[in-house]
Simulated assay, not measured.
Amino acid sequence: MSATLTLNGSESIRVLESTPDRFEVEATYAPRGERPPKHVHPHHDESFTVLVGTVRVGFADHEQDYPAGESFVVPRGTAHHMWNPGDEPAVLRWLSTPAGRVEAFFTDMDRLHREDRASLVGLAGVLHRYRDVMRPTSPVTRAAVRVLGPLSRGGRA
């Protein structure tokens, strides 16, 4: 399997393995990329190995840079977000276990970008539909997802 999916304007993934237990990708983060909203994954753990460059991870109480060669784990329920603060692309190996609906979530995010529908309502629709995969931690963002999500083709991307 080698599908490449766009997650936002600065992040894409290439699918390496997808089973019910494991969803493994190689992620590329563009230089000086977008800082996504903090979020949690209620049902899966994530583990990362930085292959090239540096990625910055913001946790609930601190930020930490991980350069090439380092690995880290984000257990389910842990508030986090990550981006590339550097001037060169960052490449990571990223594993989600169990996989659940992670691939479907990423596929719908990619579809939004390919169809030029990555608006606030479109993104809220995907987050609303996949709240079992990813939940924003900000109360304002969660409220927007609750209100706007159902307006996006009945909550479907």
Rank of each mutant, 00 (worst) to 15 (best):
M1A: 14
M1S: 06
A3W: 10
T4Y: 02
L5V: 04
L7G: 02
E11F: 13
E11T: 15
V15T: 03
L16M: 11
T19H: 09
P20W: 05
R22F: 15
E24K: 13
Y29Q: 10
A30G: 07
G33H: 12
E34L: 15
H39P: 06
H43T: 09
H44A: 12
S47A: 15
V50T: 09
L51I: 10
L51P: 12
V52R: 15
T54C: 14
V57T: 00
F59W: 13
F59M: 07
A60P: 02
Q64H: 13
Y66G: 09
P67W: 14
P67A: 12
A68D: 08
E70M: 09
F72R: 03
F72L: 09
V74F: 00
P75C: 03
P75I: 03
R76Y: 02
R76N: 05
G77Y: 00
T78Q: 01
A79T: 05
H81R: 02
H81D: 09
W83Y: 11
N84V: 01
P85Q: 07
P85N: 10
G86T: 03
A90M: 05
V91E: 10
V91K: 04
V91C: 09
R93D: 04
T97Q: 14
V102H: 10
F105I: 05
M109C: 15
E115I: 07
D116L: 10
L120P: 01
V121A: 08
V121F: 06
G122N: 07
L123S: 07
R135S: 05
R135L: 13
T137E: 03
T137V: 03
S138E: 02
V140T: 13
V140F: 13
A143W: 14
A144H: 09
V145M: 07
V145F: 06
L148I: 10
G149W: 10
G149I: 11
G149R: 05
L151Y: 14
R153Q: 14
G154M: 06
R156D: 15
